[in-house]
Design a protein around this nucleic acid. Structure first.
Lengths: 138, 138
DNA sequence: CTTGACCTTACAATAATGGGAAGGTTTATG
DNA sequence: CATAAACCTTCCCATTATTGTAAGGTCAAG
């Protein structure tokens, strides 16, 4: 299997496969005499593993940890669980941050007439001209 | 006011102030004979505007639009509202994506024993060895 | 007049990805 | 067999927003 086929089979672009190799996330694969990469089923399996981990939002570093655990027959599932839980917390942080932004913005949008006139509480809030809408006094 | 004071007053780092100037988000401010930047109250006001917009997750490009609207006396609030609403949709997309990841991960974590044994549904799912946990057959 | 705290520019790095150029290789077709 | 299309290779650049660092100029206080 050459890199194009491996890319299709794994859902990771050729570019990213080369990148993952260059940073050591995956080991260099075999090459033909002329330098073309040859991917075994095993190699593609690892790429699919990465693809799924990536879909779950794991960073390259976390994927490295997961791959190492995956390939370690004597791993403890507790270690895997710890990585996953840490990632859940990261996700929660991001989600909460975005939701906070969303709430504030939603509030401002609700109070904006959205017509031809220039008066606008959204700009008012950004310029802090007006009476602190929302901002933390519940 | 020099850049250090403007940074403290606005909550934007010196670095980022220079950067925002370099990319044209803010106009170049006055300089002393020796080249030090001098920030007026107006300049700092604009920086605070940017700081708040940034806290709401607006991109540099969006902040540029908002600044332009802010400084346009004849703006229509509808235009501001449109920018804000577009951003809310972006936030919603991001939130939904993260929540999807979180749900899947939570599900996997729940089924992982988290002990000394190597068996782990989290790795199993990433390797797609097992019976498609979660993945779209409700 | 020196020291330390400031300022200046310029360049590099981060994380993950895409784009393209310049050139070698394999495959299909005439 | 020759040639063209479709691959592959490496290398460099761009992205977004931000921080770090280095080398050097300036200012205020002692």
């Amino acid at each position: 299997m050459n890199i194009g086929q491996a890319a299709k089979a794994s859902g990771i672009s050729e570019k990213m496969i080369r990148y993952y190799e260059s940073i050591g996330l995956i080991a260099p694969v075999r090459r033909t005499a002329s330098g073309y990469r040859i991917f075994s089923e095993q190699d593609v399996h690892a790429l699919r593993f990465i693809s799924r981990a990536r879909d779950l939002g794991f960073s390259v570093e976390q994927m490295g940890n997961l791959l190492a655990l995956w390939q370690d027959r004597h791993r403890a599932s507790a270690d895997v669980k710890a990585v996953a839980q840490a990632h859940i917390e990261e996700l929660d942080d991001k989600i909460e941050k975005l939701q906070g932004m969303r709430r504030t913005l939603e509030h401002l949008v609700k109070h904006c007439h959205g017509d031809e006139r220039p008066e606008c509480p959204i700009l008012g809030d950004l310029a802090a001209e007006s009476l602190e809408l929302e901002a933390g006094t519940p």
